[in-house]
Design a protein around this nucleic acid. Structure first.
Lengths: 208, 208, 208, 208
DNA sequence: AATGAATGAGTATTCATTCAT
DNA sequence: AATGAATGAATACTCATTCAT
């Protein structure tokens, strides 16, 4: 009676389907979460934006919560990668140079992954983030912390508590990117250079 | 002291309002919105937290949207007040001193109104903010902008574009408060003083 | 006859729809709307009566308003069909005979679709009807109007304004059905025949 | 402690307040109920239309249900009055003349109390009507029934079951008023006269 | 008599998710 | 892998009503 069971033979065999479909979903989620926040983004909206049916999302992730956390980890990994990539500028290089590399690594990240940056900034809190996600938090600023620590020891930087220094640099950077995103100015080389200067002077040991 | 009872002509019609109810609601809303965001806060939750029935909320505001906007405006007003209060340190005072006052005015605000500060930071975007709310945005940083502008003219500050300077100072401050809120350190005088130093050095004209 | 089952390429994706679900919903809605009116029927009630979850209703219609309009259009179509089916009694047949057919077509409709009839009668008004629904309104009485018009030209009917004649016939019919529904009598052949007589004499040219 | 209890002395003494306030409320309710139905009319809407606070409505009626019933009874009474007023045209007068008076009594009612007429038509059902209200139903058509009965006995009217005759007359009348209200024509003397003719011929014994 | 304050119960609708193919 | 169908639980908001003056 049930006609539909006739085409049983044409069951699609385990094809990877559109590969990167999952990546696409995570990417779309990044965009929406960055723009509207976690609670402001619904699964139907997300599905529509990703070109999927709402139900299909659950083929790729187990829940909305798991989804943000995944997106979060990816974004954080991207940021970490950008930072770590800048580190190898040998611990031997002058500290100012190391700072320079770090700074522009961040700039590169903010430029190539603006959504990831916006997302991280917006979601560093959020009770939907699981323990693992929160853990990543601290590890990321490690490279900056290292440089700063080294600088303090070398008396190249102010002898203030390290957190005070880190917070200033990171704050200045975030402030710059935010302002750019808000439209106050473009995130061009000139601006980045200017703020790099202020940020360095902020932490550099005062000229004797 | 209670004005209401002194007012002889008080045409008390209907059940008298529980005094301070509306303020309490807005205050509770501030807390929840700051903690969980607009979309993460439901009316029933809010009502429960404020100690009234969900329906009663609508005696005080017309909609959830109107509510955030009201909360937003209040928070912004508080911040503006804190900043403007610091301004009168005569334009005649040394710039460093003006900066100092401004800085501690901000510190005072972040300390006495931590929720308002967190709220503003989290909600400066948000499509639920109406035009009026968004307009306030710019006006608030005006005092900072003024001091910076004056400093640049007087060659006391770096001759970089003003936005670069403002962004650094504001960013450093926000970064500091955020880090404190995240538990990295307490927002005590020492920390604030340290970051004040870095922030000033960030924008001060380099020692010749 | 069922096209769907013949269609070999039926790309059955997703869970198959419970067949006739939508029709059942519209039918249940017809009943409730006819009994209690639009505003007197709530979605939860309707859902319960139709045997589905309130949320499921929105898989079939977009809103309660769209639902009434759909129900309205269906009922109107049923009535129109009943009337048009009666028309083909050749324009050549004696007018009395045409009237007879029309009358019993209406009787048939009122008997087989009592809820549709009640609903239509009840919802002559209603701010929830959209433009399209209102448009159907007029078209329906067209067959009656035609017969009446022809009769006037042929001097078989009274030379009164057509609306006066139509209103009498239609009013008598509605009055009869209403009274039957109210329990004053059963809508049996005798009653229908009696009122058919009165209705015809009402509009027939007075015996010279 | 409670300051407000000091002005106990100025308790407004049993003043009839705005007299006719209750009438005004019932009248407003008639309008709204006639236009939008019982469930389509909310107490706040009604209060606003009547120039009262929602709470004040409960000074005059005990509940929304009691309110409709009161409105219903009033409307019914108005109709009954109109009809009974027409009866005294002595049972001695020719039946055609009695019919004529009855007809124009109805016309007068429909013209002077169009809202009451519309209301009655819309609400003769409705589960919010209590037993007493429903009871009125039958009594109202009594005058018509009497005339018809007398006419049948006198062989002036058709020898069909009385209900068939009554239903036709009443139906024609209602149909006419409805059509007028719907805008198909004005309820002027010509129209009323025309339909009076059809209605009479409908029930009059066929010319031998 | 009148009304602002307050609310429990309800309204239409959406959401995150599961089911069945 | 993908998705239409289906839903329990929620969401913002309204309503009829009572309270306290």
């Amino acid at each position: 009676m049930n006609v539909q069971s006739q085409n049983k033979a044409r069951r699609t065999r385990g094809r990877p389907a559109t590969p990167g479909r999952r990546d696409h979903l995570l990417d779309t989620a990044l965009t929406l979460f960055a723009e509207r926040g976690f609670h402001g983004t619904s699964i139907p909206e997300l599905a529509a934006a990703a070109g999927l049916a709402p139900a299909s999302i659950y083929r790729h992730v187990e829940s909305k919560e798991q989804l943000v956390n995944e997106v979060y980890r990816r974004a954080k990994a991207l940021l970490a990668a950008a930072l770590f990539r800048a580190v190898p500028v040998a611990a031997t290089a002058p500290l100012r140079e190391q700072f320079h590399h770090l700074w522009w690594a961040l700039v590169g990240f903010a430029r190539t992954e603006p959504r990831a940056f916006a997302f991280l900034e917006l979601h560093h809190h959020g009770d939907y983030l699981d323990i693992e996600s929160r853990a990543v938090e601290l590890r990321v600023l490690a490279p900056i912390a290292q440089v700063v620590e080294r600088g303090r020891t070398a008396r190249v930087l102010k002898s203030l508590p390290a957190p005070a220094l880190i917070v200033t640099v990171w704050g200045a950077f975030v402030g710059m990117v935010r302002a750019a995103r808000a439209g106050y100015f473009a995130l061009d080389d000139d601006v980045c250079r200017s703020v790099e200067l202020t940020a360095w002077d902020a932490i550099a040991a005062s000229a004797a």
